[in-house]
C-alpha cells in the first residue's frame, strides 16, 4: 500500500472562490490532479466513492465468473477463465491503491462494502447458471465496461486515469475472448446455440442498465462532467454500446431480445444508430437497492472470505511484528 502515508492525513483545504476557480482552470487546461495537490473536498469525495465502487465491482465481479472455473469444459477455457478472474482481482488492487491516494484505506472500503454502505455494479447481482454466461459476461458486461472506462483513461485525477489505461487494455482482451466463446457456442450444436441465446436474453437488458439511469435522472452527472471525471453522459455511452454490439450479435446469428430494436438513419447526427426498447428502470432500482437475485449471496460470499481470512491476516501482522522486534533486538545487541 504505497499510499499509506496519505491515509488519514489532514486533507482539508480552505475552499475560497479563488481556489475553486483556479482548480477548475487546471481541469479545463486538462492538467492531471495528483494526490498531494489541493482539491475541493467534494472532488475528493466523489472520486473516493467512484473509485471505491469501481474496485468493489472488480472484486464482487470475480464471483459470478469464478462460479465456472472448476466446471470449465476444456483445459484451454479453464486457464483462460482463471486468468481472467485473476485479472479482475488485479484491477481491484490497482483501483484500491488509486483510492488510497485520496486518504482512505482498503480495509475501510472493504468494511463499507460489507456493511452495504458502498455500492458495486449491479450487473453482478445476476446469476451465472450456464457456461454460456461466461461468454455473455465477457462479451456484453466487459464490452459495456470498456465503453464506460475508455473515457476514464482521460479522467482528471492522475492515479485513476493511469490505472484505467492498463485495465482497459485487459478488458478489451476479455471482451474479445467472451465474444469468441459465444461465437463457438453459436456455431456449435443446436443445444449450444440455444444456451448462447438464452444467456444473451438474460444479460442484454442488465448490460444496458450498466450505464446508469437516463441523463435526466442521474444525480452525479453534471458536476462530474465539469470536473472531467466523466466525459460522456450515460445515454451517450449506452447508445454507443448498442450501436457497436447489435452487429456483433447478427454476425454470429444470435437475436437481441428487443422487438423494438431497429436501425434509424437519422440517429447520431445523421450517421445512423439503433433505436431500442424501453429499459425496465423498476428492475434496475430494485437490483440497486438489494432486490436482485444474487445481492445477498454476493455479499455473503465476500463476508465469508473476509471473516474466514481474518486469522490469516492477523498471523501475517503478528509474524511481521515478531520479525521487526527480533531485528531490533539483534541491532541493539550488536551495538552493545
Amino acid at each position: 500500500m504505497y499510499s499509506q502515508g496519505l491515509i488519514g492525513a489532514d486533507t482539508t483545504t480552505e475552499e475560497t472562490e479563488e481556489f475553486l476557480a483556479a482548480f477548475q482552470a487546471r481541469i479545463d487546461r486538462e492538467e492531471k490532479i495528483e494526490p498531494n495537490d489541493p482539491m475541493p473536498a467534494a472532488y475528493r469525495k466523489t472520486l473516493i466513492r467512484q473509485i471505491g465502487q469501481h474496485a468493489h465491482s472488480e472484486i464482487v465481479g470475480m464471483l459470478p465468473e469464478g462460479n465456472w472455473i472448476t466446471r470449465a469444459p476444456s483445459l484451454r477455457r479453464k486457464l483462460a477463465l482463471l486468468a481472467k478472474v485473476q485479472d479482475e482481482g488485479g484491477h481491484g488492487l490497482y483501483l484500491y491503491s488509486a483510492a488510497e491516494t485520496l486518504g482512505v484505506s482498503r480495509e475501510q472500503m472493504t468494511e463499507e462494502l460489507l456493511a452495504g454502505k458502498a455500492k458495486y455494479s449491479s450487473i453482478f447481482n445476476y446469476p451465472t447458471p450456464t457456461w454460456a454466461d461466461i461468454g455473455a459476461i465477457g462479451w456484453l458486461v466487459d464490452g459495456a465496461a470498456i465503453m464506460n472506462q475508455v473515457p476514464l483513461c482521460r479522467c482528471s485525477f492522475g492515479p485513476y486515469a493511469r490505472a484505467m489505461v492498463r485495465i482497459c487494455r485487459e478488458e478489451s482482451f476479455h471482451q474479445r475472448q467472451g465474444y469468441e466463446l459465444m461465437m463457438t457456442l453459436a456455431k456449435g450444436t443446436p443445444e449450444q446455440k440455444e444456451m448462447a441465446q438464452d444467456a444473451l436474453n438474460r444479460w442484454w437488458w442488465p448490460s444496458l442498465m450498466m450505464f446508469g439511469p437516463s441523463d435526466s435522472d442521474s444525480s452525479h452527472s453534471d458536476q462530474s462532467m465539469k470536473w472531467k471525471i466523466k466525459r460522456f453522459s450515460n445515454d451517450e455511452l449506452r447508445q454507443k454500446f448498442v450501436d457497436a454490439t447489435v452487429p456483433q450479435a447478427e454476425l454470429i446469428g444470435l437475436t437481441m431480445p428487443d422487438p423494438d430494436l431497429r436501425w434509424n438513419e437519422a440517429k447520431n447526427g445523421g450517421q445512423g444508430g439503433y433505436d431500442f426498447g424501453a429499459i425496465d428502470w423498476d428492475e434496475f432500482w430494485r437490483v440497486v437497492k438489494g432486490g436482485g437475485p444474487m445481492n445477498r449471496d454476493r455479499i455473503a460470499a465476500r463476508q465469508k472470505a473476509w471473516d474466514d481470512g481474518a486469522w490469516v491476516r492477523d498471523a501475517a501482522l503478528a509474524h511481521a511484528e515478531k520479525r521487526r522486534a527480533r531485528a531490533a533486538s539483534a541491532t541493539l545487541e550488536a551495538a552493545e
Binding site: 469464478g66 478472474v85 485473476q86 482481482g89 484500491y96 460470499a301 472470505a305 490469516v312
Partner: peptide, 9 residues
C-alpha cells in the same frame, strides 16, 4: 477453487 474467496486480495 480458492479464486475469489482468498483471505486477502
Amino acid at each position: 477453487e480458492w479464486c475469489g474467496h482468498a483471505p486477502m486480495l
